[in-house]
């Protein structure tokens, strides 16, 4: 029988020396290719981040900002836009001192208030988990990478091609400079505030968008892999709401679910993560009541085309 075992220590030493040389040569090969390898890996993972961002953008952002980031008039401004990417454009107009990337990251995370006097009256909802939104930090990073990836095509546009000229809110209208309020009497202030509040009650369909309810819930029965998987489907809420929790009517149940979501979680969604807890502070009582009625309205889908 042929035996692998050989008694000659010299042969073994030669094997040892030969294989050490081969091993060292292989390690040297790694050494000289480390710099290009790390470069390739760096852009590889940046590319993957853009890919992840594309998926998130498609399911969460494209409804308002347009599938190609071209923006939708009256909904949300374009991101694939010359005005957005030039340093003298949007950043200068809002007086942002940091980088565009940081501006995008902050806007995604924290949302953006007060564009009410521009051509973009819709509010950018908060998306970052640390501000009560549905996305994790790494997802915000990926989305930012995706938005920033429009830079090249955006800067190729001529300013004329770019539909998104400076926002109307850049030069602020007179009533926006609200210092006169301070000089009113107390009664006048109260009356003005009441009037302001009455004027600023948002419609349920608007809240559905601005509070990003649609990111987790659906108003229509949808395909499995579409967005809106993270919360119960609300298409047939009016049928179920009355029987969810003993002793609560449908209205009371939906009201409680908005104001104090943790008090009852539908079994299937226990592991999914929680609904933001701060709607009681963000919405006025009237708005919540309106939203409850709207969500429970069986005719809702006929009046509203919000979910399409």
């Amino acid at each position: 029988m042929h035996r692998l075992y050989t008694r000659s220590p010299i042969a073994k030493l030669m094997w040892g020396i030969l294989s050490s040389i081969i091993g060292i040569v292989a390690l040297l090969l790694v050494l000289v290719s480390e710099v290009p390898r790390m470069e390739a890996q760096t852009i590889n993972w940046q590319g993957r981040s853009v890919e992840n961002g594309a998926t998130l953008f498609d399911s969460n952002c494209a409804t308002c900002h347009g599938p190609n980031g071209q923006g939708l008039l009256g909904r949300a401004p374009g991101l694939n836009s010359y005005y957005f990417f030039t340093p003298t454009g949007r950043l200068a107009d809002v007086g942002w001192a940091g980088s565009l990337e940081d501006y995008v990251k902050l806007t995604i995370s924290a949302g953006r208030p007060s564009k009410t006097d521009s051509q973009w009256p819709e509010i950018m909802p908060t998306w970052g988990g640390q501000f009560g939104g549905p996305l994790r930090g790494d997802q915000v990073e990926d989305l930012t990478a995706y938005v920033m990836n429009w830079q090249e095509s955006a800067l190729e546009q001529t300013p004329e091609e770019d539909l998104f000229q400076p926002f109307d809110d850049v030069i602020k209208p007179a009533e926006f400079q609200n210092t006169a309020f301070l000089f009113l009497s107390e009664e006048e202030q109260t009356a003005a505030l009441e009037e302001y509040k009455a004027r600023s009650i948002r419609a349920p369909a608007e809240l559905w968008q601005s509070e990003a309810c649609f990111a987790c819930h659906n108003l229509a029965v949808r395909q499995e892999d579409e967005p809106g998987q993270n919360g119960p489907n609300l298409a047939d809420l009016f049928e179920r709401a009355g029987s969810r929790v003993d002793g609560l009517t449908a209205e009371e149940y939906v009201y409680q679910s908005i104001v104090d979501p943790a008090s009852f979680v539908v079994l299937t969604y226990e592991d999914v993560g929680e609904m933001p807890q701060n709607f009681a502070e963000k919405l006025s009582e009237v708005e919540i009541q309106g939203l409850v009625a709207w969500l429970l309205d069986p005719e809702r889908d006929q009046d509203q085309e919000i979910n399409e």
Binding site: P9, K12, S19, G23
Partner: peptide, 23 residues
Amino acid sequence: PDVLVDETSFMTVITTLLILLTV
């Protein structure tokens, strides 16, 4: 010295195989 030489050379060969597979 016999077994020592055998074991060290064997482990050297294994290390190299491991390095080559990894690289």
